[in-house]
Design a binder for these strands. Structure first.
Lengths: 175, 175
DNA sequence: TCGCATTTGTTTAATGTTCAAGAAGAGGTC
DNA sequence: GACCTCTTCTTGAACATTAAACAAATGCGA
């Protein structure tokens, strides 16, 4: 039995609300395969060359892009689309590596800043070219300009759909 | 300093091999945001409704689609695009839940089959509609037919690029 | 047949993530 | 101020993944 296709006696007609059509299935499978393989690929590339997983690398990039290379924990979690708990653990590890340090927030004693250290900057400078190359090879080099544009639009739509404006939305960094 | 943009004195011209253009950066960031949020969303949906993470659910789906609901470990790892080690752990857990059982392979004494149990089937039947609904809401309902088609093509290209035919390719299930 | 590299799958330890709970401060209302 | 609720961030335990090492079987070539 197939748990994601149209029911057996309905070869392919209306996009029944509860199942994916053959074509939708193909698209969805491609999405899962590509994202799984790409995540694995980039994780390995960065683990090998920078000594950290892809998401940790993204945290350093996020800090580097911020004024004074510093961001409140919640802001950084928001940029990275992860939970504050996950961020806490991650920053603890990056701190141990000497790539990030914490600083207290003067205006709000609950708050903490994560600050990129010079060593953190250095790791980025050293490893960014290799990482960009990996992303290019895996993605941009294989797509036409039209496909690149379409990808951007599609992903933005999906991302926006998952972080609605309404209060009470289940966003990772508010959990 | 920005570790993924064109260098400071080059506002935006040729797509320099080692950096992403502004536009490429936007696309890449959208990709990362969408995939991170979607993975989180589906993991939570399935953890809540089916008591397992998304990738485990995918393993059950893979088995359900196979003849006799059974697959060799390596074949299943290949379908799911994961390592055999990861699969071993996952199947151990699913076995403990009673959703999968292992069977020896008669023709190759090293081999093992993973087999979907009746309870495993039952979990899928019970939870598939909710999962399909979540996927629809997050993805297909928000995209035009053209975008859906483009997404399928793009993701297939990326996936293919990451599993080349050459011998010696670093594929998860061969590690 | 022997020897040896390869394939198949598991195991252990280290690492990373999730979940639930909680400490501590902020901010509002009375 | 006293009280309450919400926000911010951390913690510890349970769960999941990765990495490296391994045992056992296969199968190929001498």
């Amino acid at each position: 039995m197939n748990t994601a296709s149209a029911s057996a006696d309905e070869t392919e007609t209306a996009p029944e609300a509860h199942w994916l059509t053959q074509e939708e299935q193909r698209v969805w499978r491609s999405y899962l395969h590509a994202t799984t393989l790409l995540e694995d690929h980039l994780d390995r590339q960065l683990q090998r060359d920078a000594g950290m997983p892809h998401i940790y690398y993204g945290l350093l990039v996020g800090l580097a892009a911020a004024p004074h290379s510093r961001l409140r924990m919640t802001e950084l979690a928001m940029k990275a689309k992860i939970t504050r708990s996950r961020l806490s653990h991650a920053i603890a590890r990056l701190e141990k590596n000497g790539w990030v340090r914490r600083e207290e927030c003067p205006s709000d004693k609950r708050g903490q800043f994560a600050v990129l250290t010079p060593q953190g900057h250095e790791v980025l400078d050293r490893t960014a070219p290799g990482h960009v190359r990996a992303v290019r090879q895996a993605v941009f080099d294989r797509l036409t300009p039209e496909q690149q544009q379409a990808l951007g639009e599609i992903m933005q739509i999906v991302a926006e759909g998952l972080e609605p404006d309404e209060a009470g939305a289940d966003l990772p960094w508010l959990r």
